[in-house]
Nucleic acid binder design. Sequence first.
DNA 1: CCCCTTGTTCGATGTTCGTCGAATGTCGAA
DNA 2: TTCGACATTCGACGAACATCGAACAAGGGG
Lengths: 115, 115
Amino acid sequence: MRRAHHPATEDVALTEVMAALSDPVRIGLLRVLADGGERGWGELRAPVAKSTLSHHLRVLRDAGVTRTRQEGTRCYVRLRRADLEARFPGLISAVLAAADADEVGSGVGLAAEAS
Amino acid sequence: MRRAHHPATEDVALTEVMAALSDPVRIGLLRVLADGGERGWGELRAPVAKSTLSHHLRVLRDAGVTRTRQEGTRCYVRLRRADLEARFPGLISAVLAAADADEVGSGVGLAAEAS
DNA sequence: CCCCTTGTTCGATGTTCGTCGAATGTCGAA
DNA sequence: TTCGACATTCGACGAACATCGAACAAGGGG
């Protein structure tokens, strides 16, 4: 269960980031993580099975969009916003603004959040 | 052969645009069309078969990224930059800047272009 | 030690995608 | 009208993807 495999900032590929961000669930996760804060895995709520959520988080991580930290049996995820901003200036902000306006991935949220 | 089917500006979906722009060939087409000028089909050069190029142009058109105009037996394609800018401010510019920096889709070009 | 929680991985399934060659439709020119 | 250029569509293929349930590690707590 120990595979981390975060790509280095310079190895983040545009096409992979675009592909990672072309799914509503993953866009939703991006929005939840938009403030830069760290979120616990169990905090995340998405309308998919546990294994599917794990898969989506893996896609985001492999593409270089998020960073995952493990602490004991729990793990925490956060957006690699500074890295992405350095690599593709303005891209994440534009995607976030567009996603907010369109309410893409609104099915994704946090546990203690008023719907 | 008469199907146009360009989505209205307000019907352009973020996830579809992101998916359309997650392929190197289509990113290359975006770069070729970046200046807003109209390009003839036959002008376009890409390292794929004719039918595959047609497919990629269709994906871009269906996603609302480009607009295709038919004149006799030839057709011309152009970027819907103003529409996209209105719908998703800053997105296309950010993608173009990132693509230029990374030289994504550099295999795509125009006929009379020095390689 | 046993078990429960937590997140990943596995196997399976149905869908979508990128790619090609071939066939088709559409138009202008001879 | 016949021919050729041009672009789309069709049919097919393997690869990749989204999704699920179940099985599997890795720790923490009783």
